[in-house]
């Protein structure tokens, strides 16, 4: 079953140069799709279009058989509830003036009216927050702390907990490990893998690190200069039909 389809997406910031040039891809339910490329290749722009932060110039994004460009209020709300995100910089992703518990509960408060959670069952908000912290392997005491009291890896766990809190269908992970130190990177990748096992959502994992993408994803797409060059299943990474640029990337790792 398809979660989301992107058709011929185009986006440009400067006239004459396309940041994303005619990219199409689909994400299946429960799968992780990796999107690999250098900085400036357009992978983050694609994510921002998908999240509605940027307006695309051309193309369409289809969710639940309906293009979101023509979605009504209710459909749009449903889309937002089902497409969550984790960004690269956990420090910027958390409001420094809010306690961890208040940041965690934010999406839930926004969508609680039309929410039917399958995995999380709780008696109170406090209970919910503690369950979320437990799910991402953080101590419960952190609920009452402020973001600056946590390490980078812990903060990223909090943003992940926030993203999964309303059990979305898709999480867009934009370089979620790039600003963390080595040991936290490995731990976050493992956490993301096990969360997918339990909750069953799809990932769009954007990274410049092919090896990290390989570890988490079943399918991998390669972008360069705004264009989608290559798309393959994990097992076929060494197949002879790989694009030359993909081979160059493989060589690095």
């Amino acid at each position: 079953m398809t979660v989301i389809e992107i058709h011929n997406l185009k986006k440009s910031y400067n006239p004459g140069k396309l940041a994303v040039n005619d990219v199409s891809l689909t994400i299946q339910k429960g799968e992780s799709l990796g999107l690999v490329g250098e900085s400036g290749c357009g992978k983050s722009t694609l994510a921002r279009c998908l999240l509605g932060v940027e307006k695309m110039d051309d193309g369409s994004i289809v969710y639940n058989d309906a293009p979101i460009a023509h979605a009504n209020r209710k459909q749009l709300r449903n889309y937002r509830r089902n497409v969550q995100t984790v960004f690269q910089n956990p420090t910027a992703s958390l409001n420094p003036k809010l306690k961890i518990k208040d940041s965690l509960i934010d999406p839930y408060l926004q969508f609680k009216d039309d929410l039917q959670l399958k995995h999380f069952h709780f008696t109170s908000k406090q209970d919910f927050v503690q369950q979320l912290l437990e799910t991402v392997e953080l101590p419960k005491e952190l609920a009452d702390r402020y973001p600056h009291e946590l390490s980078g890896g812990q903060k990223q766990r909090v943003t992940i907990a926030r993203a999964i809190s309303i059990e979305p269908n898709l999480i867009v992970l934009d370089e979620p490990t790039a600003s963390l130190d080595v040991l936290s990177q490995g731990a976050i990748l493992e956490l993301l893998g096990s969360l997918q096992q339990t909750l069953g959502m799809s990932y769009l994992f954007i990274s410049h690190d092919l090896a990290a993408v390989y570890q988490l994803c079943q399918r991998i797409a390669v972008m360069r200069d705004g264009e989608l060059l290559d798309m393959f299943r994990k097992e076929d990474i060494y197949h002879t039909s790989r694009h030359d640029y993909t081979k160059e990337l493989i060589d690095i790792f």
Binding site: G52, V53, R77, T85, F87, A92, S93, D106
Partner: peptide, 20 residues
């Protein structure tokens, strides 16, 4: 980014102002 995330979640300008 935290305001961007709030916008992605569709929080109204007023809510973002009040809460964040």
């Amino acid at each position: 980014d935290y305001v961007t995330i709030a916008r992605i979640n569709g929080l109204s300008t007023f809510t973002i102002m009040r809460k964040h």
